[in-house]
Design a protein around this nucleic acid. Structure first.
Lengths: 190, 190
DNA sequence: GGAGTCTGTTAATGATGATTAACATCCGAG
DNA sequence: CTCGGATGTTAATCATCATTAACAGACTCC
């Protein structure tokens, strides 16, 4: 029985993400998560070392995906294509946020519940992701100081990550277009 | 002893806001809050009916302040001054977010931990606040469907409320200016 | 100068919840 | 077959917490 095992972990992570997003890390019990995947309670310890370990793996995974995606899409040293790189970053982030609203929410909110060491690793990945944006933006706004570009990047993340809050108001494609337009405009005047 | 009493409640609410913002509602104990204001634990029950009641009052207060502020600043039926009204709404919200980052954070995150009835009241105030923005925006973008304006408003809130996350990167005045500029730009193209 | 209200304090009380123990199944490998 | 590992189950265990009880000082008003 090697193959079915792969799924359990993923199933658990997915269910836990939804629950954490809805009620917060401390608002969800191990038992809740177990129930959500059809097993009950302590069974989760066969797959994770504990509740914190579960959250840690979730956040590390998200941060890695965003960072990796960012590194792939921002690969542009050329000012001519900086515009294109920014559009790619925007589309990538929007796609992720619309596809995985629960993950975005958890990523935004639960870092403090991760044990110190892992938290540092996660923060590093987040920082690297931000720097990818800053690099692209600095080509578009050479005169703008890095601190300002960083703050602007965080602000745009706030805008793009608003998705989970306004869910259902608009169709996904319309929402994607709107977010892209707004973010693009917000970043045009720095 | 009439005067000192007034403070306790405010003190408690303030300390609780900071703690909730930092660790989340379920991550903070009554004892923690007590300690933060220099009394210990059950003393809080002399001022609030319980932990949920405390959070409820906090969120109601925030929602009321934002709504009241919005109603005051958006008072404009005139398309000529819609621009000015929007600027006022922006400045007001930014001022609030920069002055009370903890409150903004709690307001954004903890609604689900409020008991049903109060939650409805809070949601109503939030909805009214959004509608104030939508009203102003609809004068600036008459062709834009309301659902889109609402989504855009939520997105801008996400941008403006990014404050707690990028704290310290920039001086408050610089941050205020940046957020205003970005939000203005984001809302110009709908 | 005492009754009453306000605020606090320190011990229960009772739940809830994370984690671990002890005890089954199932299944593939040899 | 049968041994071992992977997965689960249920019954402890041990903390942490919200909330309530019982008791005490302080200050106001009469």
């Amino acid at each position: 029985m090697k193959t079915p095992t792969r799924n359990r972990r993923a199933e658990i992570l997915e269910a836990a993400a939804d629950l954490f997003a809805a009620r917060g890390f401390h608002g969800v019990s191990i038992e809740d998560i177990g129930t959500a995947v059809g097993v009950s309670g302590p069974a989760l310890y066969r797959h994770f070392n504990g509740k914190e370990a579960l959250l840690t793996e979730m956040l590390l995974d998200i941060s890695e995906r965003l960072h990796e995606q960012g590194a792939r899409l921002a690969t542009t040293a050329d000012p001519d294509t900086a515009e294109a790189a920014l559009d790619a970053l925007l589309s990538g982030h929007i796609e992720f946020a619309l596809t995985h609203p629960a993950l975005i929410r958890v990523h935004e909110r639960e870092l403090d519940n991760v044990p110190e060491q892992a938290r540092r690793a996660i923060r590093r990945l987040q920082r690297l992701y931000v720097e990818e944006w800053v690099t692209v933006l600095s080509e578009l706004h050479p005169a703008c100081p890095p601190a300002r570009l960083r703050a602007a990047t965080h602000a745009v993340f706030g805008l793009l990550n608003s998705t989970p809050r306004s869910a259902g108001e608009l169709a996904p494609e319309a929402m994607a277009g709107l977010l892209h337009t707004m973010a693009r405009a917000a970043l045009s005047r720095l």
